[in-house]
C-alpha cells in the first residue's frame, strides 16, 4: 500500500496556502492530520498531484478567547483539544468527545478542522459542532468568511468549502451556566467510527429545559441536528417518557447507510439508544 507520487508543499501562512491552492487548482489537496487522506492515497482512491501541508502554519493551532468567543484553530489536534483548559472549562463536550475519536497516536495528528472539513458523516466533530452552534471561519482567495455549522455540512464529503478554501477556525461560545452535556458513541472497538452517536447539551431553568441541542453522528448523509427531538424537551420538566419521545423523534430523521456495523434498522435503533443515554447523562451533569 504505497501512495502515488505527488509534489509536496509546506506553506507557512494561511495566505500562502490559499495562494498555492488557487494556483494548483483541483490537482491539489490539503494535508492536515493525514489519517483519512494518506490511507485513501495508499489505496489509490485519491491521486492528488500536489499536497499542501498546512501543519506548519502557527496561526491555525491552539485555542484563544476573544470576548465571549472561544476560537479553536482548525489544526488543533484532538489531543490538544482534550488537554485544553479553556475548552475543558467552557465547552467540556469537545474534550470529552475527542477522547472517543480514533486512538491516542491518531489523536496527536488528527485535527478538529480536518475532521470537520472532510465532510464525512462518520466523523465526530460535525455533530459536535452542530451541538455547540459552532461558526466556521473559511479563508479563500477572496478573503475570509464565516459559515455557521448548520449551513456548513451539505452532503457526504460535501461542505461549504470550495477547492481553494481552507477552514481556519472553529468558533464556539461557552455553554450556558450549569449546562450538562454528553457524547454517547456506540462503536465496535477503539479506533472505529460510530455505529451511532449522539451529542447532547442541555441547560435547565427552574427545573425546565431552557437550552437543548441533540445532534447525531453517522446516521445520515451528514451530521444531523434533531430539532423535533429538541422540541419535545424544550421548556419541559424532563421525565423518562419525554426522553423516549425525544429519542423516537430523533430516530425519524435517521437515514443511515448499511455497512458491516449494521443495517439501517439497527443503526436507527441505536440512534434511539444513544439519544436516550446522552440525554440522561447530560441531565445528570447539570449543575
Amino acid at each position: 500500500m504505497i501512495p502515488p507520487s505527488f509534489e509536496y508543499h509546506r506553506p507557512s501562512s494561511v495566505e500562502e496556502a490559499v495562494g498555492l491552492l488557487s494556483s494548483l487548482g483541483s490537482e491539489a489537496k490539503i494535508l492536515a492530520g493525514g489519517h483519512s487522506l494518506l490511507p485513501m492515497m495508499k489505496l489509490r482512491f485519491a491521486e492528488p498531484e500536489h499536497l499542501v501541508d498546512i501543519n506548519r502554519i502557527p496561526e491555525l493551532k491552539g485555542v484563544r478567547v476573544v470576548g465571549d468567543n472561544i476560537i479553536i484553530g482548525a489544526m488543533t489536534s484532538e489531543n490538544a483539544v482534550i488537554a485544553d483548559p479553556v475548552l475543558n472549562e467552557k465547552v467540556p463536550l469537545l474534550p470529552e468527545a475527542a477522547k472517543l475519536i480514533a486512538d491516542p497516536q491518531v489523536r496527536n495528528r488528527g485535527t478538529i478542522g480536518g475532521d470537520i472539513a472532510h465532510g464525512d458523516p462518520a466523523n465526530d466533530h460535525p455533530a459536535l459542532a452542530l451541538a455547540c452552534d459552532a461558526i466556521m471561519t473559511i479563508a479563500g482567495p477572496n478573503g475570509t468568511r464565516q459559515v455557521p455549522a448548520s449551513e456548513f455540512f451539505l452532503g457526504t464529503y460535501w461542505t461549504a468549502l470550495e477547492e481553494t478554501d481552507i477552514l481556519t477556525e472553529i468558533t464556539v461560545k461557552a455553554f450556558p451556566q450549569g449546562a450538562g452535556y454528553a457524547y454517547k458513541k456506540l462503536k465496535r472497538k477503539t479506533g472505529d467510527w460510530a455505529t451511532a452517536a449522539c451529542a447532547v447539551v442541555v441547560a435547565l431553568s427552574g427545573g425546565s429545559v431552557s437550552h437543548i441541542r441533540i445532534t447525531l453522528t453517522n446516521l445520515g448523509p451528514t451530521a444531523l441536528r434533531a430539532h423535533d427531538a429538541e422540541s419535545v424537551l424544550m421548556g419541559q420538566s424532563v421525565n423518562d417518557d419525554l426522553i423516549r419521545q425525544a429519542a423516537a423523534k430523533a430516530m425519524e430523521i435517521c437515514d443511515p447507510a448499511e455497512d458491516l456495523r449494521g443495517d439501517a434498522e439497527y443503526k436507527t435503533a441505536m440512534a434511539g439508544q444513544m439519544v436516550q443515554r446522552a440525554i440522561n447523562e447530560a441531565l445528570a451533569k447539570v449543575s
Binding site: P39, V106, N108, R109
Partner: peptide, 23 residues
C-alpha cells in the same frame, strides 16, 4: 499500513505518531 496497529509508532517532537501514515 492503515494506522490501526501501532507497530510503527515513533516519537516526533514529544508525541507518539504512527509512522506508516506520516511522510
Amino acid at each position: 499500513e492503515t494506522s490501526h496497529c501501532g507497530a510503527c509508532t515513533v516519537d516526533i517532537d514529544g508525541e507518539s505518531v504512527k509512522a506508516c501514515t506520516h511522510l
